[in-house]
Simulated scan of single mutants.
Amino acid sequence: MKKGYKYTVTSLIIVLLLGLLGYRIQKVLVKQKDLPKSSPVQTVQVMDVGKVKKENSIDLYGSIEAINKVSVSSKLSGRVSKVAVENGQFVDAGETLVVLEDQDYQAALTNSQNILSKAQLRLSDVQKDFEQYERLLAGGALPQHDLDKAKLAVEVAQADLNSAQVGVDNAQLSTKETVIIAPMAGVVAYRSVNSGQMVSPGVPLMTLEDVSSVYATVNVKQIDLPQVKEGMVVQVMPSDDDKQVLAGEVSLISPVANQAARVFEARVKVVNKGGILKPGMFVKTRISLGSPADVLAIPVYALSGKEDAYNVYIAEGNQARQRPVEIGVTMGEQIEIKSGLQLGEKVIVTNINKLKDQDKIAIVAQ
């Protein structure tokens, strides 16, 4: 009995000791959990905020439209036999665009020509009668009223002949107009007609756009409006790479703002050498306002954030400090900094997506 009691006491002591040990271990773990975790040191590269030459200019964006364009329609009703052109195709003036079925118009022409032939024969006959009556009247063998009747018959026959000739002319014109031709040289756009389709007079079939000279229609912000004048020389670029540049001139500035966007529409006239600019194409235009100026700039890839909320990371000792900045124009791989940085400050240019404000950093050479 004493031996069993001894074992029980020993077991209780062991359990208590194990419980106490577990409690202390748990307490230590909780304390460690509550301790602030130290951020890992980020390895970064930096560049000094420097100055670059910025063109003193305004960049405006817009689209191309033809200066001269004409809507092509049929003057007749009929079924389309052939469409000879496609959208985007260049055509010369007088080139065939659409052909209508002409059987009915050819039949009408033949009928008009038959009527004209009969009218010509009728006029010839009554003229002969009139001439004979004149001779008879001169010899006293015919009364005057018979000659008057013959003269009236000639006048009626002449009127019938004139009417028949008009009918032939109209039928010939209609037959000719079954072939619709280009009224000017240009590029085919907005073609809406197909073979087999019925067409009506005046309904647009396509548009022809003369692209030898075009307008770049751009929007000018109110803040830039005082600097943009009619007659200014403009560089026009079909893309942002500035490799293809055409010369243009501001030809018109609207005196009224677009009520929705609060911008003023301006038209830049461009001689379209080589047909580089196409109607509907998006373009960049640049208006020079004077000599280039020195501005603060950093690499574009040093920026983080989003539009209207951009920031950068500055290296201050062994810490990364986040700094909001106001940006300007992009110049190649550099971007203008209007505010937020000072010349010579060290901007972090690598691993910025892994950084937070006040993170520890280690700067390495590039």
Rank of each mutant, 00 (worst) to 15 (best):
K151S: 12
L147Y: 05
A84H: 14
S77D: 10
I115Y: 02
N68I: 01
D102H: 03
V80Y: 05
A66L: 00
Q132D: 08
K118C: 00
D129T: 05
T96S: 11
N87D: 14
L137P: 11
I67S: 10
E177R: 00
L147R: 09
V168L: 09
Q132A: 08
S77K: 09
K128E: 15
T175M: 13
S74D: 07
P143C: 11
E95K: 15
V91H: 11
V154K: 04
Q144Y: 09
A141N: 06
K176N: 08
A119S: 12
A150P: 01
K69D: 07
A153D: 15
L100H: 00
N114R: 11
D146C: 10
N68V: 04
D160W: 04
E95H: 13
D104W: 00
D92K: 15
E131R: 03
G78F: 07
S73P: 07
A164M: 07
A93R: 14
D102V: 04
L147A: 07
L152F: 15
L100G: 01
Y133C: 08
V70D: 05
L76K: 02
S117Y: 06
D92P: 04
Q89S: 06
L121E: 14
A141R: 03
I180N: 12
Q89N: 02
A150E: 00
S74T: 09
E101T: 11
V91G: 02
D129W: 02
S63Q: 10
V168S: 08
Q144S: 13
K151A: 13
V179A: 02
D160F: 03
Q113R: 04
D169A: 13
S124V: 04
Q172R: 13
S163A: 14
D102C: 02
Q120L: 08
E155H: 14
D129G: 01
S63L: 04
V179M: 00
L147N: 01
L100V: 04
N114Q: 14
E86L: 09
L137R: 14
S63W: 02
V83M: 10
G167W: 09
V168R: 05
K176D: 12
G140Y: 02
P143D: 12
Q132I: 05
L173I: 14
I58L: 13
Q113F: 01
L152H: 14
V168H: 05
N170P: 00
A171C: 04
L161F: 09
Q113N: 05
A157C: 07
L142F: 01
V99M: 09
S112T: 05
S77W: 10
V83F: 13
D92Y: 10
L137E: 15
S77H: 05
A84W: 13
T96C: 06
E177K: 02
V85T: 06
S77V: 07
A138N: 11
V85W: 09
A66D: 01
H145T: 14
V85I: 10
A108T: 07
A153T: 05
Q89G: 05
V99I: 14
S73F: 02
Q144F: 12
E65G: 08
L142E: 02
L97Y: 03
L137W: 12
A138V: 09
A164S: 10
